[in-house]
């Protein structure tokens, strides 16, 4: 099975550490980049792929790769079709 990969966009991270606070398995830590304290992934092996961090992140800086995507059947097809046309 492919391991989950997590990428934090350093330019977008606002250093709130809500991801660290929210994560049930202590995946996130802190690091200093260009004088600013931002979030970093320190323990990716423990990630259970719950996506709580991606949902709480105010700036959309956390991106997941190699995640098994389950289709969401509760979404309205009309809205999905509309959103595909959003820039």
């Amino acid at each position: 099975m492919e391991k989950i990969k997590i990428k934090i966009d350093e330019k977008r991270c606002v250093g709130c550490f809500l991801c660290e606070n929210e994560c049930p398995t202590k995946v996130f830590g802190k690091k200093v980049t260009q004088g600013c304290e931002i979030s970093s992934v320190v323990n990716v092996d423990d990630c259970i792929g719950c996506l709580s961090c991606a949902y709480i992140c105010p700036s959309g800086a956390i991106e997941f790769f190699d995640l098994h995507i389950v289709p969401n059947f509760y979404r309205e097809i009309e809205i999905i079709n509309k959103l595909e046309k959003f820039l």
């Binding site: 966009d9 959309g60 820039l87």
Partner: peptide
């Protein structure tokens, strides 16, 4: 292809979010 991504306003705001 579009280069714009659907990001929130916070992603371009440079204020420091802290407790």
């Amino acid at each position: 292809p579009s280069t714009s991504r659907p990001m929130p306003v916070c992603s371009t705001c440079r204020r420091i979010m802290k407790k």
